[in-house]
Amino acid sequence: MPVPPRRIATALVEGHLDVAPIIRISGLEGVVYPEQKSLIVGEQQLFSLTLALVGLKKRALNLNSQAELKGYQIGAIRFHNVLLGKLTVQPQTYSTAESLLKSLYAGRIDLAFSAMPTIMAGAKHLGIKDQLHVALTLDKRSYANLAWSKSSGLQNPEVLAEKFDQALLKMVETGEVERIIKRYSSTDYFQVGK
């Protein structure tokens, strides 16, 4: 079940999880929580995700740059507020892709902002994927690394994290990670490796 990054970090530190992906935004300083001193973050990237602003096809909004965002009502998954704040955009915030897309579909916002797999999975769930239109994609991407809890029941998490990084690197090089993502994901917005 998807949970906010802060909740994942807390669950790791408290030993409720042994290992979990940590999502960051490329080009921005990572969110550092006090608890992260108790985490080991893997060096090998699992995947990265395209970030985009999406509207409805019937409106056909096309943006050429971030400067054109002014004047539009924008909604965002809560985690991506950090990036929109850097772009001087103050969006309406939503906790799930479904609630974000319902607001877009109802016309309460002009554009929805999040990682493309998040938006498209939510749209597929609601049955409105064919009605969406990508107005602008950003150069920055969200990316994921695995974080290991030092306080978990695992023995030698530092060694396990290092071994996992080495194994993951080999899987990326052979194309196995990409094959896994294609098999289990219905979206095409993942990028494997660094």
Rank of each mutant, 00 (worst) to 15 (best):
I77F: 09
I77G: 03
G85H: 15
K86M: 09
K86P: 05
L87V: 10
L87A: 13
T88C: 13
V89F: 13
Q90E: 14
Q90T: 15
P91G: 12
T93V: 15
Y94V: 11
S95V: 15
E98A: 14
E98D: 07
L100V: 08
S103A: 15
Y105D: 07
Y105L: 11
Y105C: 01
Y105S: 10
A106D: 11
A106F: 07
G107N: 05
I109C: 04
I109R: 05
D110W: 08
L111P: 06
A112P: 12
F113R: 06
S114R: 02
S114E: 05
A115N: 04
M116C: 07
I119Q: 00
A121K: 14
K124W: 01
G127T: 06
K129M: 08
D130P: 02
Q131E: 09
Q131W: 00
L132H: 00
A135Q: 02
L136D: 01
L136K: 05
T137K: 05
D139I: 14
S142F: 03
Y143M: 10
N145A: 03
A147L: 03
S149D: 02
K150E: 01
S151I: 14
S151E: 07
S152E: 04
G153H: 07
N156C: 03
N156L: 07
N156D: 07
E158G: 04
V159A: 06
L160Q: 11
L160E: 07
L160S: 05
L160R: 14
A161D: 00
A161F: 06
E162W: 05
F164T: 15
F164H: 07
Q166H: 12
A167M: 12
A167P: 02
L168F: 10
K170L: 13
K170P: 10
M171A: 15
V172G: 05
E173F: 05
E173L: 11
T174N: 06
G175S: 09
G175K: 15
E176G: 06
V177Q: 03
V177C: 07
E178P: 03
